[in-house]
Amino acid sequence: MLEPLIAHFESYLPLKESEMQLLEGRVTQRKIKRRQHILQEGFPCKHYSFVVEGCFKMYGVDQKGNQHNIQFAAENDWIADIGSFHSNKSSKLFIEAIEPSLILQIEQQDLYFLYQSIPKLDRIFKVIIENKFVELQNQVLQNISSTAQERYAAFLEQYPKLALRLPNTQIASYLGITPQYLSEIRNERS
């Protein structure tokens, strides 16, 4: 059950047998249906979730009830409201499956235990978060500086595989534009 996660960690650094065993019992596997939430606004984000199969979106809902997608995660990626995860404060975000999915989840106390007992995970998670930080910083920069066209181009670069997999409405919500406008941008590009 843990193979995909171990393979993911080992793409950074090889793990010893004993280290792999420590992961047992600290990681839970869950099947998630399409449209099912693994995080709801108003609750703390209890898990760091690793996507084995499927695809998720993380979004906020504004006062008018509009959804705004902030992040996507497909196979071999992590998704969590990390601020809420570490602080135990209630989240302002939702995480929902866009496809039927299989995930591996780690709770806060278990992650802290793993950091303590497998120092390598310190390094691995440092690198994972560094990479995600750089992606997110690009996204923030796009958000304050770019046109919808440029943001779409950046989206394609960040999520090359997801562009075909995600419904138009979801990408439009991520870009902060209407689905109609997204179609226009796509037509212009082709």
Binding site: G60, H68, H86
Partner: peptide, 15 residues
């Protein structure tokens, strides 16, 4: 990373 995630959330979903 947390600070960025909060910033993006607020810039996308708040007036």
């Amino acid at each position: 990373y947390i600070a960025l995630q909060k910033r993006l959330t607020s810039s996308i979903s708040l007036p």
